[in-house]
Design a protein around this nucleic acid. Structure first.
Lengths: 343, 343
DNA sequence: CTGTTAGCGCATTCAT
DNA sequence: ATGAATGCGCTAACAG
């Protein structure tokens, strides 16, 4: 059942060498220090015994765990799994293991998780959490832990970050509906204490301005969370204003779904009465009625890029922090159409 | 920047005790062995220095990593994140950390991941992977690693498992449409080399039989994967047969979505011409047109239960393997209705 | 109740 | 090219 695990010493004994030699032979980095044939003997002995190096012991000795903490708000949000996959795949290539946790964007949870991760001697952190107020991460960063932020950044640029160009994304959305002929364009904004919510709101103002369109304050409504019900509430507020908007850019897909609900409640239809654009291009969003036009973000690439940045820092501690901006794109579907002209 | 980390020895020195005493004072389990006031002194010293126990060193000494490997086919499949959350939350309460990996149901990937996890000295494994053929897990089980299977089980019952009662789930679906008056009921089955696909197919045959309904072989079509396109293909095959089915039970929601496509391609509508039932009750499936009737699986509970079973084994090695069957339920929405009676 | 001693498995000096 | 010695940080067994 549970045989005593095979250790380096066992391998060394079978190969009739000193454990130190076995260690050198087994480690690709140091194999050249060992004579070819003895190295071979060690390898064979290891294979025969089914030797599996004890990563824990190695970490204790080398002070590198080859593990990375990954902080995610909530894996149930379909936005994150692809990012996590990207991180996992890239880290895996480099021999690193991710420790994935959900923080629910809760400062306490986040702090506890960071604490246990540091106790587990993670070599670095990748954080996709989005609080702008309280921030346990900043402490870890200050303590010298290599960190890469995802979808957000620190004001002072002291920490590496990979973000999507939210402003450009919103600009794509606004330009699209403007190009269809819409002039009264509303915005169902996300919560402003979340970085994406805030940036997309700013992006909306900018984009409208750049196109020479006026932003009616009544055409902008803020939601308290990225949920359908919040989206519906905010959208209803926008729809109440006259003359009514003919297009709404939502700060994300779930808010956009809420917009669908609000339209339905008003007896309006999309895109005939109001065009809707979402953000994120969630899985299955193309199966809504109507299929949602949405800004696509390169989620997997976000993950691989973040891992890449972190690996660079882990490999070379002198690597300076870098901020990368990834490009979104627009996926046009059936929720947007030219505005109806009064008969 | 990177101060030398605070060790137990530092704490002991400040508290003017031996490191072993400090260790005892810091560990809740052994604190009672230390006099109240000295324990207090140690705690204060630890707090003052910001001591953080080195989990790696502890693991090496105690031979317990307090970590658990979690093998998931693919986090992008919305079925799994809730399960993972359940696992994470329950394990976390007990002081365990999950190591989550995606296997893509690929035997090689799975084997590699298991290998690195064992090298990292995980105390046990939770596996939600579903291959019925090749199986790297069995080896680990044989080697004495505590394992809990999710959504599948070994034939011999030698390993703990928590599964959903697929047969009952399908039975709920079949009974529902039968209760609406349907008699010609089809099944878009999943791949038969995946446990859920196979069990749901058997469940369909059983349920039909139990209701005294005949299974026309032409009303059953097997898909090669749980995807929309496969579902559409399989569904088209079923629809081709005359007299046409009036209801279809799909082996999961994505296949059901494919059924929607196939119906649309035939100019048929749901539920007027054909009722459709899915399985899993995926997020946002209620927002399809029509909202899909589906068998709901208690995903989070699957996770917590699996964690519970594993913790029991970790706490007491003599704990025998147990197989738990969780109950699904039916969520009725608008994709099912009584069959149309010919005018 | 506390100090002493020892060693978990490994990688890295330093000798030879 | 290999062996010997040492210690990463911690906890368990044994004294006292």
């Amino acid at each position: 059942m549970a045989d005593p695990p095979v250790t380096l010493k066992d391998v060394a004994a079978l190969a009739r060498v000193h454990p130190a030699t076995a260690s050198r032979a087994l480690n690709p980095e140091t194999r050249l220090l060992v004579r070819e044939d003895t190295a071979q003997r060690v390898l064979e002995a290891a294979a025969e015994l089914g030797y599996r190096p004890n990563t824990v012991a190695r970490s204790l000795r080398t002070r590198r765990s080859h593990s990375v903490g990954v902080l995610i708000p909530d894996l149930n949000n379909p936005l994150f799994p692809p990012i996590v996959r990207g991180i996992e795949d890239r880290l895996g290539e480099a021999g690193y293991t991710p420790l994935i946790v959900n923080t629910d964007n809760d400062a306490d949870r986040e702090r506890r998780h960071i604490e246990t991760m540091l106790a587990r001697q993670v070599d670095g952190l990748i954080a996709a959490t989005a609080r702008l107020d309280v921030d346990p991460l900043a402490e870890a960063a200050a303590a010298g832990t290599p960190i890469v932020l995802v979808n957000r950044s620190f004001e002072d640029g002291s920490v590496s970050a990979v973000t999507v160009d939210d402003r450009q994304g919103i600009s794509l959305a606004v330009s699209h509906v403007a190009g269809l002929g819409h002039r009264r364009i509303g915005h169902v904004a996300g919560p402003q204490n979340v970085s994406t919510g805030h940036r997309r709101y700013l992006g909306f103002l900018e984009a409208m301005d750049a196109l020479g369109l006026d932003v009616e304050l009544e055409y902008v409504s803020f939601s308290a969370a990225f949920t359908e019900t919040e989206g519906a509430t905010a959208c209803a507020a926008v729809l109440a204003h006259r003359p009514r908007v003919t297009a709404i850019v939502a700060a994300n897909d779930r808010l956009a779904m809420g917009c669908y609900d609000a339209l339905a409640a008003e007896g309006l239809s999309c895109p005939e009465d109001v065009s809707i654009v979402g953000f994120n291009d969630m899985p299955f969003i193309d199966r809504l009625r109507p299929p949602l036009t949405s800004v696509r973000v390169p989620q997997r690439e976000i993950g691989t890029t973040a891992a890449e940045l972190l690996l660079a820092q882990l490999t070379d501690a002198s690597e300076p922090p870098r901020e990368l901006l990834l490009e979104p794109s627009l996926v046009v579907r059936a929720s947007t159409a030219p505005p109806a002209t009064p008969p």
